[in-house]
Computed example of a mutant assay.
Amino acid sequence: MQRESHHGTSHPYRQLFSNQPGRTNLIVYRVQTGSHPPIRCSPFRVTGKTAQDLEREVWDTLALGVIQPSASPWASPVVLVPKKDGSVQFCVDYRKLNAITVSDAYPMPRPD
């Protein structure tokens, strides 16, 4: 298999990756929060174009099956982070959840 540079040319494993977000059903991960009660953060206020971009991102990820409607007592706000190419990155602000999450006893080993 021929390997080419990363500047606009193909990679040997390109078929393994996609520009579309996805999901796997091979594993289920449960975030351990101990006995902490659910954290429910209010969404950030958005207006105008940001609101339109946010709604489009929600519908797109729903259509891809990456997210689904939920009635969970846990809630974290979403933010749209501008990317260099002018598009937006859909992100979730998990800072409050991360602050109470119990760390894994066996973290992922370093790949090197």
Rank of each mutant, 00 (worst) to 15 (best):
C91T: 07
P12S: 12
P111K: 08
T9V: 09
Y94R: 08
I67D: 00
Q2D: 13
Y94P: 04
R45E: 00
D53K: 09
I100V: 13
P107Q: 00
I27T: 14
A71M: 08
M1P: 07
Y13N: 12
H36M: 05
G22E: 02
P82N: 06
T24D: 06
V88N: 12
V28F: 10
T61N: 15
P12F: 08
P109V: 06
S70Q: 04
T47I: 03
C41L: 10
M108K: 14
L54E: 01
M1A: 14
S10W: 10
T61D: 08
H6G: 15
R45G: 01
L54R: 10
R30W: 10
N19G: 15
V28W: 03
C91P: 03
Q52S: 12
G86L: 01
W59I: 09
P73N: 02
H36G: 04
N19Q: 13
G34D: 02
D104W: 02
L97G: 10
L97N: 13
D112K: 10
S42N: 13
I39P: 01
L54I: 05
T24A: 08
P77V: 05
H36W: 07
S5R: 12
P73C: 01
P82T: 06
L97H: 11
T9F: 15
V92Y: 05
D104R: 06
R23V: 03
L80K: 08
K96C: 11
E55F: 07
H7I: 09
S103G: 09
K96Y: 06
L97S: 14
G48L: 05
N98W: 13
V102D: 11
F44V: 05
L54W: 06
S76H: 02
A75E: 00
D93S: 03
V46M: 13
K49D: 12
S72V: 06
N98Y: 13
T61L: 10
N25W: 11
P69E: 02
V58D: 01
T33P: 01
N98G: 15
Q68W: 06
T33S: 09
R14G: 07
K49Q: 12
P43Q: 03
S5G: 15
I39S: 03
Q68Y: 13
Y13A: 14
P37A: 07
S72K: 03
V28P: 00
I27Q: 15
T50H: 10
G65P: 00
P43S: 12
R14I: 13
P107I: 03
G65Q: 03
H36T: 10
I100E: 08
R45F: 04
S18K: 02
S70E: 02
A105R: 12
P69I: 01
V88G: 00
N98R: 12
Q15V: 15
R40E: 05
V58C: 04
T47C: 08
Q52P: 00
S10D: 08
S87P: 01
T9G: 14
P82C: 07
A63E: 02
T50K: 11
P21G: 11
P109S: 09
Y13L: 12
D85F: 04
T9M: 09
S76A: 13
M1R: 08
F44A: 04
L64D: 05
P21D: 01
S70D: 02
P82A: 07
T50I: 09
P107S: 04
W59L: 14
S35V: 11
Q68I: 03
W59D: 10
S42V: 09
